[in-house]
Amino acid sequence: MGVEDIFEGTVNITEAGLAELDKIAEAQEKKLKKIQAQNKKRGGIFAEDTGDLPKSFERQQEESALQRIQKLAKDGKINLGGTGAPIQHNSSFQKAIDDAVARSTSKLDKLTGSKLGTDKLDNLLSFGKNPVGFMTNLFARQLPILGGILAVKDIVQFVIGELMKPGGPLQVNFRDIISTRLDAFRDKMVQQEILSGFTQVIYTTRAGTTNPRSAYNSFELFNNDKETLEDDFSIRVSKVN
């Protein structure tokens, strides 16, 4: 039996309310999907599916912003220019641009170490990228008459080939020059002797022992792997077009 008392109240969030909210969201989603489909149909940038809201939505916003601007112009608060409007010279803006250009040019000159314009720097970069093409263009540009008479292109290619062959001043391969080689532990003479097989160096992973299990003889290595070494250190000629 006992005593029973009822505490009554109202709920804030109801099932009906959530259902209504879902309905609204569904309707909105459908609307947006429809716009997206229309945009796809229109093609071009409108068809890009970036996952963002449809572009026409943004366009609507932009249009409304444009209308606001036009209203301001109508009220005489801003000047939009247009036909018949006076040309407005903004000297400070132009000056700022000129200064920026001057600054960037001087920086470029510092970078290249000489008075180079952007045009010259471009030339320099193109030479690094494609020397044959650069030289061909240069000759064709600077010596148009010769180019007409002689097969300048073939000549240039021959000259460039001569310059770039192994040992030439424009050789692009890796060059192993003994006089410039650095080794922290051996002098240049010893390095060359080891390389030529006149002396031997025993490498070991254990201090105080030359047990063949843990030691490597450079002389043996030289003899055994001579072919590999020659292949590794030989100058390879690669064709550059």
Partner: peptide, 10 residues
């Protein structure tokens, strides 16, 4: 639907 009841018993 929009209300609740809590029964307190002793």
């Amino acid at each position: 639907e929009e209300t609740f009841q809590v029964i307190i018993k002793s």
